[in-house]
Design a protein around this nucleic acid. Sequence first.
DNA 1: GTCTATAATTGGATAGAC
DNA 2: GTCTATCCAATTATAGAC
Lengths: 207, 207
Amino acid sequence: MSTTHFNTKERILGAAEELFAQHGFAGTSLRQVTSRADVNIAAVNYHFGSKENLVNEVFRRRMDEMSERRLALLRKAREEKPGDLEAILAAFIEPPLALTLDRHGGSAFVRVLARAYAEKNDGLRKFLSDNYGHVLREFAKAIHQALPGLGKEDLYWRLDFTAGALTYAMSDFGLIKRPSGVPEKVHCEKAAQALIRFAAAGLRAPA
Amino acid sequence: MSTTHFNTKERILGAAEELFAQHGFAGTSLRQVTSRADVNIAAVNYHFGSKENLVNEVFRRRMDEMSERRLALLRKAREEKPGDLEAILAAFIEPPLALTLDRHGGSAFVRVLARAYAEKNDGLRKFLSDNYGHVLREFAKAIHQALPGLGKEDLYWRLDFTAGALTYAMSDFGLIKRPSGVPEKVHCEKAAQALIRFAAAGLRAPA
DNA sequence: GTCTATAATTGGATAGAC
DNA sequence: GTCTATCCAATTATAGAC
C-alpha cells in the first residue's frame, strides 16, 4: 500500500490505461507508455514481463473492484428490494459509471473497456470471460427472477443490448456530449438514470 | 464495373476489411493485407497512397450504400406509415444487419464498424462524422416527430443507447451466439426483431 | 500496373553495469 | 529497481526496372 500511486508500477499502469483508451492496445507502444509515465523503457518488462501481460494487469486493477461492487450491490438489491428490476439494473450500471468520476484515471478505463469489446481474438477476451464472466451470469439469473415471463432467448438478447448501450454511453461516442455548464458528476448521474429507464422498459417489452 | 470483385483494388479492400475486423486498424499490417489479397506489397501504396487512406476507403465502400439504404427506407416509412416508430427503427437497423448476410464480406464490415466506434481520435471519427453524420440527424428528426412528448435530451440519450445496442448486437460480442442449427439469415432476422422491440419500448418509456 | 529491392523508422525485448 | 545501450524483427513507404 502506502504511496501506491506514485511508484513506478502504478505510474506505468496509469499511463498505459490512458494511452490504451486513446489509441487502442496495438496502437500504443511501450515507448509511449514509459515516456508518459516518466520511467525507463526497461521498467515495463521488469515489472510486467511483456506487453500482453501489462494489458491484462490494466484490466485486473479496475475490474476486480468493479465486479465486486456490482455483485455487492446486486446482493443488496435482491435482499432489500426483491424483484425490483430498476434496482438490479442500477447495480449493473452504477459501478462502471462511477469509475468515470474516479479521481485517478478511472475515466480512461471505461473507454479501455469499450476497446476490449472490439478486440476479437487474442488472449484478452478469454482473460475477461474467464475472470469476470460469472458476474454477467449472476445478473442474468436475477433478471430472470424479476421477469419470469421473459423467455431465455429474449432475456439474453436484451441483456446484450443493455450491455451495448452501457458501453456506448460510457465511452462518450455518439451524439451526447456533456455541455460545458454541466458538472461531470451530474452528467453521469443523468446518464445512469436515463439508461436504467431505457433498459427497464426494453426488458419489460412484450415478447 | 465488369469484374470489379476480382481486380487488385477490390481484393485489397476485401482482405483489409476482414483483417481490420479481426485485429483492428493498428493491429493489422499492410503486409498481412497484401499477403491475404495475394497481391504485391507495393500495390497498396500504388492504389491507395497510404494505410490511413485505405482505412477510409474500406469504410466508404460500404457506408455509402448503407447510408442511402437507411435514408431510402426512412423516407418510405415516413410516407407509408407516418409516425410508426417501429418502421423508423427498422429503417435504421435493417441495412447494417443485412450486411451480415451479404455474400461478399459484408459480415466483416459490421465488426469493422464496431471498431470504429472505439477509435477515439484520429482522422477516422472525423471522416465518419463529416460524411455520415447527417444520416443520424435525419433519424433523430423522424423519431422526434413520432414521439413528440419526448424531450430533446432524453431523445438523444436513447438514440445513443439504441446505436450502442445495435453495434454490440452486430458484432457478436456478448452472450448471444448463433446456435449451429439456426441459419445465419434466421438469426439476423431474430436479432433485428428483438432489437426493434427493445428499442421501441425503451424510446417510449416515460420520462 | 506489377514487381524486386531497399530505405528509414519503429517496435518489443534483453544484457549487463550500477 | 533502475539505467544505458543494443539486438533483431517488423513496419510503412518509395525508387526504379519491367
